[in-house]
Design a protein around this nucleic acid. Structure first.
Lengths: 137, 137
DNA sequence: CTCTAAGTGTTATATTATTACATATGTAAT
DNA sequence: ATTACATATGTAATAATATAACACTTAGAG
């Protein structure tokens, strides 16, 4: 048998644009805005907003990054398997964002929506907090 | 004592612009976009985006309306006392938005964040669903 | 090798939101 | 009533965010 019919979804390697956008978000670790990404990657050959937005769209779709709607920013995913369900804390004072990665949260939310008779397909939760260092100062 | 120092916050009546924007959202009942509101209220004398955004900002601050971040839209508040905490369902198919007004949800979330050692000041929850009529068809 | 889906590059444009500044209005204290 | 002050208004300009349209290229399956 000449080929192991390996179209088992194919571990789809990223394209150049997707790669450099992902790398930037990975190295940064904090939420970045599309046009900031564009400026940062001019030297890598990204010239237009659309190139950035297309890469971002794909990465969101793959669950490798998330969009934080309330600040129009994108952040590297801190979990696995959370392509659709996201939960963040956002510091009201300094703007720092953290992804909540507690599996327990997911279960809690599942219970919560079950109790409220919601049939959710996915969710996006944004919790505004006062982060530790802001609380101290 | 010469004056009953009645600056008890004053039940702040709305200004004209705030009023007509609120009325439109009230009558509509569904999420509207700022520029749609502007177009709709041209005849009422609203001429610039800023007039709309200023009214919207104030109404959000007063808790009379909410912004749904993921669709850049504003919707009349369906509850009372939820100026800061909001929860919506958004149909993935038809886009229909409903505010979740169950007090139980609020308690659940409080518990949830307590258990996760979050000190939240407010939250915005967006649950994507398939609404009844979309599920049927 | 050929076909096809997906991605690219580019220009133009649409959509969403804010800055800056001069003027007007409502409310409270005098 | 008059002043003082915070808040709201009107307007023009512009910033920030996002998508449409179209021609071309590339990667991978058969």
């Amino acid at each position: 048998m000449r080929s192991t019919h390996t179209h088992s979804k194919k571990n789809q390697s990223l394209t150049k644009n997707q790669r450099i956008v992902l790398d930037l978000l990975q190295n940064s670790g904090e939420p970045l805005k599309a046009y900031f990404i564009l400026d940062s990657l001019k030297k890598e050959g990204l010239n237009s907003p659309l190139q950035v937005y297309r890469a971002l769209d794909k990465l969101v779709e793959l669950g490798k990054i998330h969009k934080i709607e309330s600040i129009n920013s994108f952040i590297i995913c801190n979990n696995s398997n959370c392509a659709s369900n996201t939960a963040f804390t956002i510091c009201e004072r300094c703007g720092k964002v953290k992804e909540i990665k507690n599996k327990y949260l997911k279960d809690s939310v599942s219970d919560l929506v079950k109790d409220n008779q919601l049939e959710i397909t996915r969710y996006n939760l944004e919790f505004y907090v006062l982060c530790k260092s802001c609380k101290i100062n």
